[in-house]
Design a protein around this nucleic acid. Sequence first.
RNA 1: GCCGAGGUGACAGAGUGGCUAAUGUAACCGACUGCAGAUCGGUUUUUCGGGAGUUCGAAUCUCUCCCUCGGCACCA
Length: 479
Amino acid sequence: MVLKVYNTLTRKMEEFIPLQGKKVNMYVCGPTVYDHCHLGHARSYISFDVIRRYLIYRGYDVNYISNVTDVDDKVIYRAKETGEDPFTLSARFTGSFIEDMENLSVLPPDSRPKVTEHIHEIIEALKTLLKKGTAYVTQKGNVYYDLSSSVEKIGVLSHQTAEGLLEGSGRRVDVEDDKRYQLDFALWKVVPEDEAGWDSPWGRGRPGWHIECTVMSMKYGSEQLDIHGGGMDLIFPHHEAEIHQSESCTGKHPFSKYWLHNGFLTISKEKMSKSLGNFFTIKEVLKKFPAGTVRFFITYTHYRSTVDFNEEALEEAGRARKRLLNTIYNIKNALFDAPDYDKDCGLGELIEQTRYAFITAMDDDFNTREAIGDLFVFSRKVNSIITDEEPGKASLNHVIGLFSEIDEVLGIFDDSKSCAPEVNIIELSEDNIIELISIRDNARYNKDWKKADAIRDELKEKGIALEDGKEGVRWRRKG
RNA sequence: GCCGAGGUGACAGAGUGGCUAAUGUAACCGACUGCAGAUCGGUUUUUCGGGAGUUCGAAUCUCUCCCUCGGCACCA
C-alpha cells in the first residue's frame, strides 16, 4: 500500500517518499495573532493535524513545526486601535489560539516558534541573502528580496507568469515605491521610533512576513522539508516567497518536497470575510457545538475541498457522528452480558477489512470522507452482529480497539475536552436514577403506561435517556 | 486579463473505464417495542449540468456548449 499526496508544486498526485527514510519534517504556517482564531483556522489546523496523525499511524517519525506570527503590521495596527502594547496583545491572542487548539484536540506541535523570539536568526538570514546578492537594501533602509536573482522560480507554486501576477497586482494601490521590481518582497521593513521594532544593521525595523518561516523551519526542522502546508491562500505570495529566499539562503533545492494546501471554508456559501460580517471564531462555535462534532464536520470533508459552514450542516454532522458513538455505546452494553469464551461471529474478519479500507482511503491523499464512510458500513454491520448474534467479550473489545485505533488519527470521538455546555443537565445521583427506574419498572409491570412514561419524560428533562430493550431498561446521560 | 476548483439522487458528498453509483442527513414505510428511543431492512434513487464523439462498455476519456465558486502581493 502506497501513500499518495497531491503536491501543489507539480499539481499531481505523487507517491509520498520522505527525503530521509521514515523521518518527516513537516511545517505548517500558523496564524497571525491579532485576533481570536476563526473557523478557517480550525479547518486548516484540524486538516493538518489529521495528516500528521496519519503519518505517525503509518510509522513515520514526524517532526511537526507550526509557527506563531506574533509581530506583523496587522498586530501593530490592531494594537494602535486598542491602545494596547502590541506584544501584550499578541501574547494574549497566542494564548487564545493555543487554548482553541487544545479544545479542538489538535496535538501540540513539536515546535511552536514565535517570530519575536527569532529576530536574531532572521537578521542572520538577511545577512546571508545580502552576501549572496539576492537581496538589497534601499535608501530608506528597507531590505527586499531581489527576484531577478531567481526569475526561473516565479510561479513555481502559483503556476502564474510574472506578467499575470503583475496584471493582478496592478489593481492594488499600495505598491511600495522603493522596490527595484514590483514583485520583490520585503524582508525587513524600517519602522518609526514609536513603533515596535528591533535594531538591525539596516536600522530599526521589523521582519517581513515571509522570512520567519524560512528561518524557523530550518532551525527546528531542516534546510529541506518533506511537507510544507497551509491554506490555499498562502500559495502566493507567501509560500512562493519562502521558496525564493530559502533556496537562495541554502543553495538547496527543493526547499520542500511536497506542498499541501487545504481548501477554504465558506459561511452559508459566501466567502468568510469581515466586511460581510460572516466571521465565526472558534470560541463562538465551541459554545454551541461539542469539539468532536466540529472535528467530525471538518474531517468528513476532504481537506482540499471547499467546505460550507452553516448551523444545519453542523447539526447534521452531529447527528451523523452520533450514529458512530451509539455503536460504541451499543458494544459497551453488549459487553455486560457477552460470553467470556471466544466467539467471533465474523467480527475479526470485519475488523481486518475495515482497517484495510481505512488505510486504502487515507493513503489516497488523506481521503477522510471515504474513510469515515467505511466506518459507517463497519458500524452498521457491527450493530447487526450484536443484535442478531452473541459475540464474545474479546471480539467486542477488538471492535472497540479498532474504533480507538482509528480515532488516534481522526480524533472525532473524544469529547472530554469539549467546552460546549451540556444541554439541560441537572445532576441526579445514580441512586436517585435507579430508584426512579425501579418505580417505573413496577409501573410497566402493572401496565401503568401513563406513570411509566411520566417517569421517562421526567428523566428526559433532566438529561437522562431511558431505553427499553430485551435485557431490561438502560439509561445514559444525554451528550 | 491571468490562474484554479467544481456541477452526481430531496440535501450533503465519495467514486474517475466494467459486479445492483459509497456514505451521511432528511422524509416515509416495515421489523423490534405497550409506546418511544437506539438498532436493522426498505423507499425517495437506473441516475451522474446539456449535446456530440471514442469504446464491446463512460458518471469516469475526447470535443463542444451552459452554469457556479475561488485566487491574483491582508488572509488558514
